[in-house]
């Protein structure tokens, strides 16, 4: 294992401290653990947003704490959900009279830990609700699986629900718009090389020199299938076709996110975006805005994911609303 770290068991805390020190006037870390909050708490009449998950997905989620997006992000160990006591501390720290909405990615661990934390908050009469993001079309949503995974589309839930909360909407309204984003956002990813969890010391999976994993999750977990590496355009087409077949995007305006998995050069992400834009135009999908960069990563995995969010007037307005966070400004 070759990494720029100091000690395996210091990775998460030093990462969070470094993030906070990058914006000391805007972010703060709670003493109880790896919980990032806004330096200045929002007013009591606005809903607070809490998210979180395992570390290793930077800038998610701590990098999206700030005006117009999250109020708090709780970081667990690398690729491991944070524990209920820490999530509860985060909820308590940012809770307002208007309530708290937790944005949870659909993984059994994240859901279970957030549910326990929400029970704890409910016991203390904090008004709290949650939504579960499940945008990954690579895995089947059925009674026979845990349901689709939550991946890069989560960032758009942060953005849009965050803007709604900033307007002073009620908890019910903020939840409703988060649900609307979830209903309209779809993602699929792939990898060309694996990543190593520091505590494990070796890669979580292996890929041959000429092999790629299609439909991979953000923890390097296996996707739909492996195949021989193809051109960037061919791979992007495979992912896009699966997304476009899932909900009807024809004639609609969309936000496109070309998300790097951590070790993918921007050069390659732009090559992919070059194809994506032309392909969507030919498919009759109108691109309203495009985000290219690292938003939801998997440590040093090389690969990318594509996300499409179908817009309506409300989502467009909230997407365009101001945001001031380390990883997303508008």
């Amino acid at each position: 294992m070759k990494k720029l770290i100091n000690a395996v068991d210091a990775v998460e805390e030093q990462m969070i401290l470094g993030l906070v020190k990058s914006a000391p006037d805007k972010l703060a870390k709670l003493d109880c653990g790896n919980v990032v909050v806004r330096a200045k708490k929002k007013s009591a009449d606005k809903v607070a947003l809490v998210s979180g998950g395992g570390s290793g997905h930077e800038p998610a989620h701590g990098g999206f704490v700030g005006a117009g997006m999250l109020d708090c992000a709780v970081a667990g160990a690398v690729f491991t959900s944070p524990t209920p006591d820490k999530i509860f501390e985060g909820i308590k720290a940012v809770a307002t009279d208007a309530g708290v909405l937790c944005i949870v990615k659909n993984y059994t661990g994240d859901v279970l830990n957030f549910e326990m934390a929400i029970d704890m908050a409910g016991d203390e009469d904090i008004k709290v609700d949650h939504v579960v993001v499940n945008d990954d079309v690579a895995v089947q949503d059925s009674l026979y699986t845990t349901g689709r995974r939550g991946v890069a589309g989560t960032i758009l839930v942060h953005k849009i629900a965050g803007a709604k909360a900033e307007e002073g909407a009620s908890l019910e309204e903020v939840k409703a718009v988060a649900e609307k984003v979830i209903a309209n956002v779809r993602t699929m990813g792939m990898a060309i090389s694996p990543c190593t969890v520091p505590a494990a010391g070796k890669p979580g999976f292996e890929l041959a020199e000429d092999e790629v994993e299609i439909g991979i999750g953000i923890h390097g977990e296996p996707g739909t299938h492996r195949e021989k590496i193809a051109t960037a355009d061919e791979i992007a087409k495979t992912l896009l076709d699966k997304i476009l077949a899932d909900i009807d995007y024809k004639g609609r305006e969309v936000v496109v996110m070309v998300n790097g998995m951590g070790a993918t050069p921007l050069m390659e992400l732009y090559i992919i975006n070059n194809f994506v834009q032309d392909y969507l135009a030919a498919a009759g999908v109108k691109v309203y805005d495009t985000m290219v960069g690292n938003y939801m990563t998997s440590i040093e995995m090389a690969g990318f994911s594509l996300t499409l969010l179908r817009l309506d007037d409300e989502l467009k307005k909230l997407y365009d609303a101001p945001a001031d966070t380390p990883a997303l400004k508008r």
Binding site: S81, P84, D85, K86, G109
Partner: peptide, 12 residues
């Protein structure tokens, strides 16, 4: 265990 394990196995 709940406060240190994380993942699904911690709550379970």
């Amino acid at each position: 265990l709940v406060s240190t394990v994380g993942g699904a196995s911690g709550p379970l």
